[in-house]
C-alpha cells in the first residue's frame, strides 16, 4: 500500500518541492529574528549555537513527525466512506498510515537539500554532537514523535463518530500544537513560571524534544527521562485511541446504509 501511495504521490513532485519551501520559511524567519536579538545584546537562556541548530533542524522534525489526516479521516467517517473499509481485511487507519509514510518519503527528497543549504550557510554556528548515539536517539525520538502526533490525530478525528463538524477542533489542535510543540519558539525560551507545565505536556515530545537531543545541553539523565515520558505518552494515548476508536466503530451508523 505504501508503495502504491508513493507511486501515486510522486506525480505531484513539483508540488512537494514548493510545499517544503513553505515548510522551512517560518523557521528561517524565526532564526533570523532570534539571531538579531542575540546580536543586539538580548540575554537569552540559550546561546547562538543552540538557536541556530534548533531552527535549522526544526523544519525537518516538524515534517517528519507531522500528520494531516484528522480532517480527511473525520470526513471519511462522516460521509460513510468508512463502510467500504469495514468489509475489507485491513483497517481504514492502515490507508492513512500508508499515505503518511509515502508522503514523508517523498518530502524527504525535497526537504533535505534545502535544509542542507541553510545548514551550509550557518555551518559556523551549528552545534553538532560527534557521537553517533545522540543521532540514534534523535531518530528513535522522531519515530516516537510521529506515532504520538498520529495518535492525537486519530483521537480528534474519532470525535467525528459523535460530532458533525470537527473542523474547528482540528484547526485549534494545529494552532495550539504549533506553540506548545516548540515549532514557533524554542520551548527553552518560555518563561520560567511555565517551565513545569511546558516541559511535561505531550506536545513537547512531538517536535521540541527530538530537536533538543541534538541541539541542546540535555544530560544523560534528561535524555532517559525524556524518552521515558515520550514512550509513556505513546503508550497511554495509543491505548486511549484504541478504546475511543473501538467505541466509535460500535456507535457508527453508516450514511446511506
Amino acid at each position: 500500500m505504501t508503495a502504491a501511495e508513493i507511486a501515486q504521490q510522486s506525480v505531484y513532485r513539483g508540488a512537494w518541492i514548493i510545499f517544503m519551501l513553505a515548510n522551512i520559511c517560518v523557521p528561517i524567519i524565526s532564526l533570523l529574528i532570534w539571531r538579531t536579538a542575540l546580536a543586539n545584546g538580548a540575554q537569552l537562556p540559550v546561546d547562538e549555537r543552540y538557536i541556530t541548530t534548533y531552527f535549522v533542524l526544526l523544519g525537518f522534525v516538524t515534517m517528519a513527525t507531522s500528520s494531516w489526516m484528522a480532517a480527511f479521516l473525520a470526513n471519511d467517517i462522516r460521509l460513510g466512506k468508512l463502510s467500504s473499509w469495514m468489509v475489507r481485511p485491513a483497517s481504514l487507519l492502515v490507508k492513512f498510515v500508508a499515505n503518511n509514510l509515502s508522503e514523508k518519503f517523498l518530502k524527504v527528497f525535497a526537504l533535505v537539500p534545502m535544509i542542507g543549504i541553510v545548514w551550509w550557510i550557518f555551518r559556523d554556528s551549528m552545534n553538532l554532537p560527534a557521537d553517533a548515539g545522540r543521532w540514534a536517539l534523535f531518530a528513535i525520538s522522531i519515530v516516537l514523535g510521529a506515532v504520538l502526533v498520529f495518535t492525537i490525530d486519530i483521537l480528534i478525528a474519532a470525535l467525528a463518530f459523535w460530532m458533525d463538524d470537527v473542523g474547528a477542533l482540528v484547526q485549534a489542535r494545529v494552532i495550539i500544537a504549533s506553540v506548545l510543540s516548540g515549532a514557533v519558539v524554542p520551548l527553552a525560551l518560555m518563561p520560567s513560571w511555565s517551565r513545569g507545565f511546558v516541559d511535561h505536556q505531550p506536545f513537547r515530545y512531538t517536535v521540541s524534544f527530538p530537536v533538543e537531543i541534538v541541539a541542546g545541553q540535555l544530560t544523560g539523565r534528561d535524555l532517559l527521562a525524556g524518552l521515558g515520558i515520550q514512550l509513556g505518552y505513546v503508550v497511554v494515548l495509543g491505548a486511549l485511541a484504541r478504546l475511543v476508536w473501538a467505541a466509535g466503530i460500535r456507535a457508527y451508523s453508516a450514511v446511506g446504509a
Partner: peptide
C-alpha cells in the same frame, strides 16, 4: 469559527514578540 480561530491565532502570534521583549528592552 473564523472569529475564534482568528483571535487564538492573533494571541499566539504575539507570543514570540512578547517572549523576545522579555529578554531585551529594544531591538
Amino acid at each position: 469559527t473564523t472569529l475564534l480561530v482568528g483571535l487564538v491565532q492573533l494571541g499566539l502570534g504575539i507570543v514570540p514578540t512578547l517572549l523576545l521583549f522579555g529578554f531585551t528592552a529594544e531591538v
